[in-house]
Structures are given as structure tokens and as C-alpha cells.
Design a protein around this nucleic acid. Structure first.
Ligand SMILES: [Mn+2]
Ligand SMILES: [Mn+2]
Ligand SMILES: [Zn+2]
Ligand SMILES: [Zn+2]
Lengths: 145, 145
DNA sequence: TATATTTATGAGACTCAATCTCACAATAAA
DNA sequence: TTTATTGTGAGATTGAGTCTCATAAATATA
């Protein structure tokens, strides 16, 4: 999806939510989507500020919620009390290996696990809306140090 | 494991950490272990207070950390900013289905997933120390309402 | 385009789980 | 016991996230 198409899709979502098209909202979307990192709100906030874009923390937090609701972003909670967000634009589902030493986040996808997971839900008559599968440990780089 | 054996094991762990045997520490362990719920620190704190046991929030938080370190407890982060703890005493590993409507937590274990998970770690040369596999959705009770 | 109406923004106050402080209390070694 | 050491607890502090509300900006209307 190119940048213009993305903006249009975002504009549609804003319209659906009866939200106005503001430079801040577009800047936050673009900042998130143009990186493949797992970003904290404070990080997005400073990145935009450093680009000379006027934005507040409140606006970043409010916008991230909306981006998650409309599937432009995915929220990641790794248990340290800081929410991280990653772009879902052009990104397929995956789960995470998280290094306890350096904080690096490695992505993985295992289709067999995804299938087994769904069958568990069926067994329990449970309707899955989302899932997180996080493996914590020590990454290769940190092991060799 | 009977209660006396547990207390002895806990005493050993305290010794190993060069920590003293205090009534508060034993009370916190017993309160957690005698329930099969996923408990918040504040919940443990009030439960003990209501039993007339003198304890502070700080002591509960400090002791939970130690219980996790020595494998008497497991910490659960479901993304709402509140840490929950469950007993690991006589409890085998499992993961969780979490209802977004009522907050109910259902436990599951799938050995195939556990094996696949380990093979992913091998592929990435990643040393797993722990993992969390959480499935969020709507439980049968909430669906039928 | 000009004006009216509605909604968004942002600085800072506020919330709340968790952590820290430190005077005092309790424990365990000698 | 005595004494050194560690723990406890009330309240202060921290920090991510939320809320407030006066002002600014976006869109609807003329
Ligand atoms: Mn990712
Ligand atoms: Mn459990
Ligand atoms: Zn690492
Ligand atoms: Zn439910």
C-alpha cells in the first residue's frame, strides 16, 4: 500500500469515527508506519517534536488507541508497564521472542501453533479476538557475550 | 505437598536469600497457595488484614517478588497494568484464555504447542526462560448473555 | 469567502499501581 | 540476654497513562 492510499484509508476511518483530519493525527500514523520497530508513545512524541511537529502526549495516546481500533497498529504489552505499538500496515501476524538482557524483540510465526490455538478455543467454546504469545529469554547476541 | 513441607521449603529459600523468617512472609505464602485464583497484591493485602494479620502493601509486593524468584508463584500480566499472581505449588504449567467481558481466566495446556515453541527457540538460537501465551476473547458464559 | 459550529489540541493536573524511605520493631546469632 | 542485622509499615514518591478545559483548528453553512 502506498503512502497516499494509506492516508486515504486513515481519512476514511477518521470519518467513520466522526473525527477531524488534523496534522497531528496524520503525523502520528506516518511516524509509526514508517518504522518497523515496537515504539513507545513517549518515543513517538519526541520523534515528532524533533521534527518540529507540534504535538502533545495526550494526542499521541489518544491517537494510538484509535490506530489500534482501526487496525493500523497493534499494541504490545511485554510486562514492564510500558505499552509499545507496531505498525500493522503491510505487516502480517506474528508473535515475539523478547530478550531479557538487551530488550531486543524478534518476530516469529508458526502456522501450526496458530491452528492449534484455534482448536483450543473451539474446545472451550471460546471466541478469540486476539492473542499474544511471548517467549522471554536470552538472544544469540547476548548469549555470546 | 503438605503445608508443613511447604513451610520448610519456603524457610530454606529464605535462608538461601539470607532473609529472616517473619510471620508476614509465611502469611503471604499461605494466602496465595491456599487459593487457585490469579490474585492482585492489593487483594492479598486486604485478605490478610481482614484476618487480623498486620502487613503492609510494601511487604506484599516485596514478598511476591521473592515467591516468583523461588518458583512458589507465577506472575501474570494481562495488559491492564495490574500484576496478578498464582500459586505454582502443586500446579503444572499452563497458559490462559482471558475473557474480555467478565475477566474470567480459563487455563489450558497444549503439549504440541509447548514442543513447537521450543523448536522455534532452537531455530533462533534463543534460550527460553519463560513464556506467556494468552488468548483474549469472549467466554461461553458471556456469549450466551 | 466569511462566519458559525463543532471538535481537537496541549499544558499541566490528576490517577493509581508499584516502589522507595526511614524510624522503629522483630529476628537470630553470639 | 545482648547485640547486630534485617524487616516492617505509613506515607511519600515515581511514572505511565488519563483527564480537564481554555484555546486553536477544522469543517459546515451562508
Ligand atoms: Mn512485532
Ligand atoms: Mn493460571
Ligand atoms: Zn539480547
Ligand atoms: Zn466472560
Amino acid at each position: 500500500m502506498d503512502k497516499e492510499q494509506l492516508k486515504e484509508n486513515f481519512a476514511k476511518a477518521l470519518k467513520q469515527e466522526k473525527l477531524k483530519r488534523t496534522p497531528q493525527r496524520f503525523a502520528i500514523l506516518e511516524e509509526l508506519v514508517s518504522s518497523d520497530e515496537h515504539r513507545e508513545c513517549t518515543d513517538i512524541y519526541f520523534a515528532l517534536r524533533n521534527q518540529g511537529i507540534s504535538v502533545s502526549r495526550a494526542t499521541v495516546y489518544r491517537t494510538m488507541d484509535m490506530l489500534v481500533k482501526y487496525d493500523f497498529a497493534r499494541r504490545l504489552d511485554i510486562g514492564d508497564g510500558i505499552a509499545r505499538y507496531e505498525s500493522k500496515v503491510g505487516v502480517s501476524h506474528h508473535d515475539h521472542l523478547i530478550c531479557l538482557e538487551c530488550g531486543k524483540i524478534i518476530e516469529f510465526l508458526n502456522r501450526d501453533i496458530e491452528v492449534l490455538q484455534q482448536s483450543i478455543c473451539n474446545d472451550f467454546d471460546f471466541d478469540m479476538t486476539r492473542h499474544t504469545h511471548q517467549i522471554f529469554g536470552v538472544c544469540p547476541d547476548c548469549k555470546s557475550k
